[in-house]
Design a protein around this nucleic acid. Structure first.
Length: 810
DNA sequence: CACGTCACTGTTTTT
DNA sequence: CAGTGACGTG
């Protein structure tokens, strides 16, 4: 059976699997069976070397990769006898972030956090940076929150601590305060008992660095460490791996320098290039046989990547069928590009009896998915978009999660700010600002201020103080129930009792319906989570905080499309890493898109863009089709683009330029500039009768840069007179209230004061704007009296009686 | 205090 | 064309 296991591998794969005595680096060309080596190696360690599953640490980049690998190992072990299928479950396998988050929860006290700490996502991090910039009264044109946040992230990825930022290479004299923002940011996170994504790595590093006993504990635990996608690790990740493996050197990292595409996230390609400097006697294994793609695809990809300077030399080859050339299909516009792709999908699917799931469309930026979505809906092609805003980033879901977060960790500043006045409970910006001010002056969390407003001299009116106290009690009440009620039960209660449910369910406009559906889906997802956790029997009570820990590190790629039917996949090239499809479309191959204009000024960045295209092409098994568009709708305007420079990097004899209309395929080698040819042909066509069916749609359009003409006044028509009157009439009505208000010059309170006396809960009113509705609730006194009214057509609104214009009708 | 309107502005990739 | 912030109105 051992023989059995190794027999399924080629020579170099087998060598890589068998070598377990020291550090090893496996350079795995695209499609060369990298995952296969990892899974077989783990199976080998368990089965042959007698390691226990909990002694193996395997780090991946996505949850999906971890899950798939676990499944494959479970299956593999099932084939070997003597192993129960449960073994794989105990492997310490997951993303860097999820594994380290677990360690940090266990050791949180050592670092001055508690184990319920929140994980701030990118939006939280930016929002916090933004408020700090505001508080420091800095110019947010110079200190743009998102770019400052990115700089802080970059600093962390390079293990530059806040105090050291000013002296680091990241310091930019044009923005001298970034270091100060970083310092305050870190303090605020700590007060909020929160860590951002990067902190999960940095604090793990510091934990091991500053607590030798703890490091030893984990070194004892992890007898063997494996790392997937090593080319995308950053400095901290590499440092932590070294902390864990320094003594034993039982470490195996797998990756491909040609697929390093995450430097914007701090990934350091030198980690893989210099791996052998970090470990003595590290052995290098190269996997060069590609099992995924046809020969021509592999050759074309090789010809492209050869243009890069920095790389580990390797010779990726394929013994699969010869296959066909890469195809380049230029389009007139982004709309035509989508049409070409969809038609190709239909054609290939029919010709080869393929499923929709055999196709993937890969683009550089998420925004490009639009035109394809439209076209696919038109042609009834089922599709699924990965990435973009995931389910958990939708407003209604984030709101609910913010409640959960606050209940689990009341110090969570970002969660608190998000929901303290949603649904509105009369705690507005003014009050929140006062709380933030007090919190920063005293160096405590916002929650501390809310809990002891008097002690911290929070200067608010009595009414506001009451509202704050009510809010505090409500949150505290939920927190108290956390131990006794499971995540679903309490979660449901929170949604009901907080008023979120009422807010979302009160109205019937179409967009609110989808919010309701999302919320229901979310709740049922939570129920599934609780049940599956219970079935696993790992814990008796599945709490809100268990749920949060899971959710915080989940991405869209993880929510597997368990729904019906095969679908075309749409995603960015980045998220396609590690995947493969029979047919791949790489779209938008234009300057200003791919390569991205942000990357064209440095060779290093440009090489990364080239690697990105290499990744895209090597996802293809059989067909790889490249497209580009001459005109593209961007920023609400038609823009002109030239073809990507990378097209010229592909060996011309391996690329076929195809025109849509005619079947005479031109060889790219004789057409150095496909564009000019294409363009002139379309121009001619537009003057001819047999115009290009799609291009002719555009011929009526003026040139993209033409100044839009002002539309003329409509010509007089038989209807114009009455039409005019309608307008005049409408205007007159519209202006009426204003005209009235001016000469009278009365305080607006006067008219409503009359109505206030008659107003009672349950009565019906007619509002000037919202129409007829019934009064649900009246609260507050004097100037602040507020009514909650359920309008027939406008949903539920809160009206401040001081301003509201309405009359009581029943 | 809450909501609607309007002008502005910025665009890469993600655990 | 979004998503955001400033502003006015009820």
């Amino acid at each position: 059976m051992n023989a059995n296991l190794l027999e399924q591998l080629n020579e170099s794969q087998r060598q890589a699997v068998e070598y377990c005595d020291g550090a090893s680096l496996v350079i795995a060309g695209a499609g060369s069976g990298k995952t296969r080596v990892l899974t077989y190696k783990i199976a080998y360690l368990l089965h042959e070397k007698g390691l226990k599953p909990w002694n193996i640490l395997a780090l991946t980049f996505t949850n999906k990769a971890a899950r798939e690998m676990k499944d494959r190992i479970a299956r593999l072990l099932g084939e070997l006898d003597g192993h129960d299928s449960d073994t794989a479950r105990y492997l310490q396998m997951g993303t860097f972030h999820s594994i380290f988050a677990r360690i940090l929860r266990a050791e949180a006290q050592q670092l001055g956090f508690n184990s319920q700490f929140t994980i701030y996502d990118q939006a939280d991090a930016r929002s916090l940076v933004k408020s700090i910039i505001k508080e420091m009264a800095l110019d947010d044109k110079v200190y743009k929150p998102s770019s400052v946040s990115d700089q802080i992230s970059m600093a962390k990825n390079h293990l530059i601590l806040p105090q050291a930022f000013g002296d680091s290479s990241l310091f930019d004299h044009r923005k001298p305060k970034v270091g100060d923002i970083y310092i305050r940011y870190s303090e605020r996170c700590r007060q909020a008992n929160a860590m951002d994504f990067d902190d999960l790595l940095v604090y793990t590093y510091r934990l091991f660095q500053e607590h030798e006993d703890i490091r030893r504990k984990y070194v004892e635990k992890f007898h063997y460490v494996l790392v997937d996608e090593y080319q995308d690790t950053n400095i901290v990740q590499q440092a932590i791996v070294l902390q864990l493996t320094r003594e034993r050197q039982r470490v195996c990292v797998v990756g491909d320098d040609a697929q390093s595409i995450y430097s914007f996230r701090g990934a350091n390609i030198d980690n893989i290039l210099n791996f052998r400097d970090a470990y003595d006697n590290a052995r290098l294994f190269k996997l060069e046989q590609n099992y995924r793609s046809t020969q021509l695809i592999v050759q074309a990809a090789n010809s492209l990547i050869r243009k890069n300077e920095r790389q580990i030399p390797k010779d990726v080859f394929s013994n699969n069928e010869h296959g066909e050339k890469l195809q380049l299909k230029p389009a007139y516009s982004d709309r035509e590009e989508a049409l070409i792709v969809c038609n190709d999908i239909q054609r290939i699917r029919r010709r080869e009896k393929a499923e929709y799931s055999d196709f993937a469309i890969l683009y550089r930026t998420n925004a490009q998915s639009r035109s394809f979505e439209e076209q696919m809906r038109k042609q009834n092609i089922p599709y699924r978009i990965y990435g973009g805003l995931s389910f958990y980033q939708r407003k209604e879901i984030k709101d609910v999660i913010a409640y959960f977060r606050l209940v689990a960790n009341p110090n969570d500043e970002e969660a608190l700010k998000r929901i303290i006045n949603y649904p509105s409970r009369g705690i507005g910006d003014t009050t929140v600002n006062k709380i933030v001010n007090a919190a920063t002056t005293y160096g405590v969390s916002l929650w501390t201020i809310i809990s002891q407003p008097v002690l911290f001299r929070l200067d608010v009116s009595k009414g506001t103080a009451t509202k704050l106290e009510a809010f505090r009690q409500q949150v505290e009440g939920w927190a108290g129930r956390m131990a006794g009620e499971d995540a679903y039960k309490l979660g449901h209660a929170i949604i009901m009792e907080s008023g979120v449910s009422k807010d979302i369910y009160s109205s019937h406009n179409p967009e609110d319906i989808s919010r309701q559906e999302n919320l229901e889906e979310f709740l049922s997802g939570m129920q599934d989570f609780v049940e599956s956790r219970r079935e696993e029997g790992l814990e008796q009570q599945v709490s809100i905080s268990d749920f949060l820990q899971e959710v915080a590190l989940l991405t869209d790629l993880d929510s597997d499309g368990n729904d019906e039917g095969p679908k075309v996949s749409l995603m960015t090239v980045h998220s396609a890493k590690g995947l493969e499809f029979p047919t791949i479309f790489v779209v938008g191959l234009e300057e200003n898109i791919f390569p991205s204009p942000m990357c064209t000024d440095s060779i290093r960045a440009l090489e990364e863009e080239r690697r990105l295209l290499y990744v895209a092409i090597t996802r293809a098994e059989k067909h790889c089709i490249l497209t580009c568009a001459q005109n593209r709708f961007r920023f609400g305007r038609m823009e002109y683009d030239t073809p990507s420079r990378f097209i010229r990097d592909i060996e011309p004899s391996l690329l076929q330029v195809e025109s849509q209309t005619t079947s005479d395929d031109a060889d790219y080698g004789t057409q150095r500039l496909p564009w000019t040819q294409q363009r002139s042909r379309y121009r001619e066509d537009s003057n001819q009768q047999n115009a290009h069916p799609v291009a002719s749609q555009f011929k009526a359009d003026p040139m993209p840069r033409a100044v839009p003409r002002r539309t003329e006044e409509p010509a007089p028509s038989p209807f114009s007179e009455s039409f005019k009157q309608q307008i005049v009439g409408a205007r007159a009505r519209q202006f009426k209230p204003v005209a009235q208000a001016k000469p009278v010059a009365q305080p607006p309170a006067a008219p409503s004061a009359q109505t206030q006396g008659e107003l009672r809960e349950g009565c019906t009113i007619e509002h000037q704007r919202f129409g007829i509705g019934s009064v649900v609730k009246i609260e507050g006194t004097g100037e602040n009296t507020k009514a909650t009214v359920n309008f027939r057509n406008a949903g539920t609104k809160q009206l401040l009686l001081k301003f509201a214009r309405f009359k009581v009708i029943g």
